[in-house]
Design a protein around this nucleic acid. Structure first.
Length: 143
DNA sequence: TAGGCCATCTGGTCCT
DNA sequence: AGGACCAGATGGCCTA
């Protein structure tokens, strides 16, 4: 997508991979030591790319299990983490309340769960501000 | 057009 | 020594 047009399956030296401003021709004419360094840099770039792709895959998995407020709007990474955090806290709270009031047959918690997506998204919107978020954390843990 | 978000490159540090 | 992880820099894409 970005500047480099590199293949994903590269592990050490990819023929299509080029260091910024370094042509394949230049690469071939380089002294062996410099060429070695260049190859290692390119391999490191490829590893870093794969690592970040793995991280993004994990973010996508997280997005799938976290509430979203719109089908079209994809949560940013930051928003995904914040949403996951407050989602977990909310579920935790539901469990705590079910333990406190329920005997196992009390499904009032389920009602809370149904309400969750609405409330949660509203909460999350409020979390856009760090100050409000801190307040939300305090409130959540105080229960 | 400015600002947000993102992918990629890069050099440094830590770990095995 | 080489790989994993991290953070800063850079530049592209998109939207208000």
């Amino acid at each position: 997508m970005k500047s480099a047009s590199m293949s994903d399956e590269d592990s050490t030296v990819d023929c299509d991979v080029q260091l910024k401003g370094t042509s394949k021709c230049q690469l071939r004419s380089m002294p062996a030591r410099v060429e070695g360094l260049t190859k290692r840099r390119l391999a490191a770039n490829a590893r870093e790319r794969r690592r970040m792709q793995g991280l993004n895959t994990a973010f996508d998995s997280l997005r799938k299990v976290v509430p979203q407020w719109g089908e079209d709007k994809k949560l940013s990474k930051y928003e995904t983490l914040q949403m996951a955090l407050s989602y977990i806290m909310a579920l935790n709270r539901i469990l705590s309340e079910a333990e406190r009031y329920g005997d196992g047959e009390d499904w009032s918690a389920l009602h809370h769960y149904e309400q969750f997506h609405q409330d949660h998204c509203q909460n999350f919107l409020a979390l856009s501000s760090p100050d409000v978020y801190d307040h939300f954390l305090t409130e959540s843990f105080s229960h």
